[in-house]
Amino acid sequence: MTSLILRTMVRLLLPLLLMFSVFLLLRGHNEPGGGFVGGLMAATGFALVSIAFGSTTARQVLRIDPLFLIGVGLLLALSSGLVTLWLNQPFLTGIWYKLSLGTFGKLELGTPLLFDIGVYLTVWGVTLTIIFALEEVG
């Protein structure tokens, strides 16, 4: 679709949508958000690029094959569960590490975050795989 308005808006929207998707992912543990909706948001950004500029351009902008994202996502989610085996804990036990940032307070990092990143990447990859494939048929 060669619409000037759409193309201009997409240029502006893509970075915003991506940033927002990461924001959603990271806040998910305490506020509304999470990996699933974040992944969808990220996919929406590239779906827009794909509609405005075509899937070839969208693939170039993304640089990574969406299929690869699926694989990495699943692997991350799985490995976040396997980390626990080293600590002699059951599979997928959440393990937390408190990071002190001085005046900024403290940051709690845990394997569920890694898991959520896995969900994020998988959802992102699956959605884009389907959208690109549909667009490239015929």
């Binding site: 543990h29 999470g34 699933f36």
Partner: peptide, 11 residues
Amino acid sequence: HGRNIVNVILV
């Protein structure tokens, strides 16, 4: 360690 129960259940 999470206040968003929906997400805590999921992950």
